[in-house]
Amino acid sequence: MYRIRFHGRGGQGMKTASRILGTAFFLECFEVQDAPRYGAERRGAPIFSYVRASRSPINERGVITNPDLIVVADDSLIPIPAAGVLQGITDNTTLLINGHDDANTWKHRLNINCKVLILPVTEEVEDRAELPFVGSACVGAAARLIGVITEENLVEAVNDEISSLGADLIKQNIDQATQAFELMAKHEGLVKESTSKTPLDYEQPEWINIPFENASISAPTIHAAATSVEVRTGLWRTLRPVINYDRCKNCWWVCSTICPDSAISVNEKSEPVIDYDHCKGCMICVARCAPHAIETIPEQLAQEKEKQTA
């Protein structure tokens, strides 16, 4: 069975990617399962989807924990543990990254021994939550790596899954998919099917009898205030608002009031300060600051700059 997982951000079309690949497999007469991870998709937030395909009926279900191929549409997610990109990776896994850095850099950085392939970023965009056609490119590359999907069926699958988008967009998606398909020609068939866990080699689950705990412990109750600050929603951000204090008029804290996420506070010098651990990068503050004192910087660029100065 083939087990493939797609990782990206809400808005980058990972659900569609898994559907296209599922359909392509289906057109090749495979038995197929494809699904997005269940839950509300939030723009910019880490998200994944997955595909299983096999020549015989598939009994396995749920999230893939032992992927043969991991496709990463947005390389900025890899270092984020909560995104779970590397979950279940082994030396037999192939990791396909849409990004700038080369394969060795990633191997070194992640200290991994598996096959790493790079799908070069074709188009630079300011806002990575809107990477155009990244899903289709990822599928095209994945299809070639798997090696059992023809270009013809790949194209038909893209057509099927995005038919509501209009001719222009369909064509651009198909172009992206086929270009990526060509690009991976020399790696055709690199990803191999793997077997299932057997009763001979499984790890025994460490079941326990959970202790009885009375309702003061075991009711679904949070006994504290504002614990949500521990959730780093700043990870969702693909664009970063940066305040230029030379321009800031310390107006009536417009930005601080309208930021939906309470991510702008006002310090003792009466200046607005952005909490980057939690700013989701909606850019409302940028849009509404009358003297244009808040600038927009691609998050990746901002992080690289930070690294350099650190």
Partner: peptide, 13 residues
């Protein structure tokens, strides 16, 4: 599972 099972355990108590 934890919350539901604890409710069951409370009922068993």
């Amino acid at each position: 599972s934890y919350f539901r099972y604890e409710t069951h355990l409370a009922a068993m108590q």
